[in-house]
C-alpha cells in the first residue's frame, strides 16, 4: 500500500528579502499536526521536486497551545501550528490536500515562519499591564474575589500574546499605531481586579490616546480567530463604555 502523504507549501525568506515558495511532501502519521510535519522536513530537507534545501525555520515551544509561539498563517488563517491537525475530526487535509503555510504578515519577518512580535509586548508596557504590589515579601492574604469575577478574569487571562487577533485585524499594520484587541481586553482584566482597579484610570488613559480603542474598526475578525476563545469584542465594548465615562466625567473624579 502506498504511504499516505501530505504536501506543505511554505513561504520562505530572510527578513525583508524576497520570498520564495517551496513544497514538501511528508508521510502522514497518526495524530500529525503542522509542527510534526515541519519536524519531519528538517530530518530530510528535500523539496517535493527533489531539491536539497535548508530546513524551514519556525518558532515553537510548548506544542500544546499554551505558549503562543508557533502562530503562523495556515491556508489563509492565523492559528497555532501545533494544534492544527492534518487528519482526524479536526484535520485540515485528511486526504493529503496541499496545506499553505506562511509567516504572519503584521510583524517583521526574521526568517521563514519566524516573526518578531516585540510590538505586542511593548503594548503590554503601554497599558501598564500588571497589578501593582508593594513587594514580594509576606503581606498576608490577597483580596477576596467572587467565583464569578474569577471566572471572567481567568478567561481574559488566558491570552498568550500569540498574535492571531492582530493578524486578522484590518486596523493593525505598520502604518497604524493601533495596540490591538488583546491589549484592550487585558486592560479590562487588570481593571476588574480588586487591587488592580486602583490604577484603573491610568490604564484607561493608555487606551484613550493615539492608537488606542478609538482605532478599533469593529471588523470583529479578532474574536473569530482567538484560539483561547477570549471574548475580545465584549471586552472592547466594556472598555468603550469605561473610556467614554472617563472622557465625559473623568475631570470630576480627579
Amino acid at each position: 500500500m502506498a504511504e499516505k502523504t501530505v504536501t506543505l507549501r511554505i513561504k520562505r525568506g530572510v527578513a525583508d528579502e524576497a520570498s520564495t515558495w517551496e513544497e514538501f511532501s511528508v508521510a502522514l502519521q497518526p495524530n500529525a499536526n503542522v509542527i510534526s510535519c515541519l519536524m519531519d522536513i528538517r530530518k530530510n530537507p528535500v523539496t517535493k521536486d527533489g531539491k536539497t534545501t535548508t530546513p524551514v525555520a519556525w518558532d515553537a515551544a510548548c506544542l500544546e497551545e499554551v505558549c503562543g509561539s508557533c502562530t503562523v498563517v495556515i491556508n489563509g488563517r492565523a492559528r497555532q501550528a501545533c494544534s492544527t491537525m492534518i487528519a482526524g475530526p479536526h484535520g485540515i487535509a485528511p486526504n493529503g490536500e496541499t496545506i499553505t503555510v506562511e509567516p504572519m504578515s503584521k510583524f517583521p519577518r526574521v526568517r521563514d515562519l519566524v516573526v518578531d512580535r516585540s510590538r505586542m509586548f511593548d503594548a503590554l508596557k503601554r497599558i501598564r499591564g500588571w497589578v501593582q504590589i508593594d513587594g514580594s515579601h509576606e503581606l498576608g492574604a490577597g483580596p477576596r474575589v467572587s467565583a464569578s469575577d474569577q471566572e471572567i478574569m481567568y478567561t481574559l487571562s488566558r491570552c498568550m500574546t500569540c498574535g492571531c487577533c492582530v493578524e486578522s485585524c484590518p486596523n493593525y499594520n505598520d502604518h497604524s499605531p493601533f495596540i490591538g484587541p488583546f491589549a484592550i481586553s487585558l486592560v479590562r482584566m487588570y481593571n476588574m481586579h480588586p487591587s488592580g482597579k486602583m490604577q484603573a484610570g491610568e490604564r484607561l488613559d493608555s487606551i484613550m490616546s493615539d492608537g488606542g480603542i478609538a482605532d478599533c474598526g469593529k471588523a470583529q475578525n479578532c474574536v473569530k480567530v482567538c484560539p483561547k476563545e477570549i471574548p475580545l469584542i465584549e471586552s472592547i465594548a466594556v472598555m468603550g463604555r469605561e473610556t467614554l465615562k472617563r472622557a465625559l466625567f473623568g475631570w470630576l473624579l480627579k
Binding site: W130, V131, I133, S136, E138, L139, G140, A141, G142, P143, R144, V145, S146, A147, Q150, M153, Y154, S157, Y190, H193, S195, G196
Partner: peptide, 14 residues
Amino acid sequence: YMLDRMGVPFNRTP
C-alpha cells in the same frame, strides 16, 4: 498569598 496579590486568577470558594 503573594501570587494572589499579584492578581493570579486562582479558583475561589463561594
